[in-house]
Amino acid sequence: MKARILAVVGGLLPGMPVLAEAAEAGAIQDPAAGWDHLWNEVLIDLTVMGGVFAALAVWWLIKYKATSPTQIGRGPKLSRAQTWSWALVPAFVFMADDFFLAAKGWTLWNIYRTVPENAMEVKVTGMMWNWQFEYENGVTTQFYPLEEGEAKGDGLVVPVGRPVVLRMTSLDVVHSFGLTDYRVKEDLMPGRITYIWFYPKEVKESVVTCTEYCGMKHSYMYAPVKAVSATDFDSWMNKKKQGGA
């Protein structure tokens, strides 16, 4: 059943070997790349399904327009066997697609939840309305978006090429650590610890936003996430250790 659907969808997806390549290289399986790949697959699946229904509907809506006010529909009357097949066959087709998607989703999920051994640990504390990042050596950074009209602080700085695992908790209410560019997100709660990990592969600056409603300045609870080269990271960290800004 799954194989059949695989064949069908596979036929529609000739040019998407992204994930396979990553696996061959023995590289770290990256949530962001996996997300983009699966998202494209799912979009195609949805477009096919939606397209079939939409096209049928449009066709019928035009074709079966009544020609006279007294006209009556000639819809088929189903025999018992037809009734059952029109229930069971679609049910199995949908189910097959569901299990196919579930299998795909599970595979990606395992990547999301398997933290690489060498990951750099950062503790994230959420509070109204601020993020605090604490590195393993005790260096702490914070970011103040609205401080006297001008943003201040470093936010999260990470070296390129090393996975980062975030150990997260909240001091007050539920927040959520939404890291759009790396396709990961998880809530922070008081009294509980949650994790996410991501893999910065190139130098870039992105942003973490709070994605769980947390009150008046929810919209301003964000911080930059800077992926910098390893040497830049080391010099930044050294400066931080000496108490530099």
Binding site: W35, G50, G105, K185, E212
Partner: peptide
């Protein structure tokens, strides 16, 4: 209905949730 399907998939939802 169809846009609900990626939201049903745990890993895809982690990015889309609360957006």
């Amino acid at each position: 209905g169809l846009t609900g399907i990626p939201l049903a998939m745990t890993a895809l939802d982690l990015h889309l949730s609360e957006t």
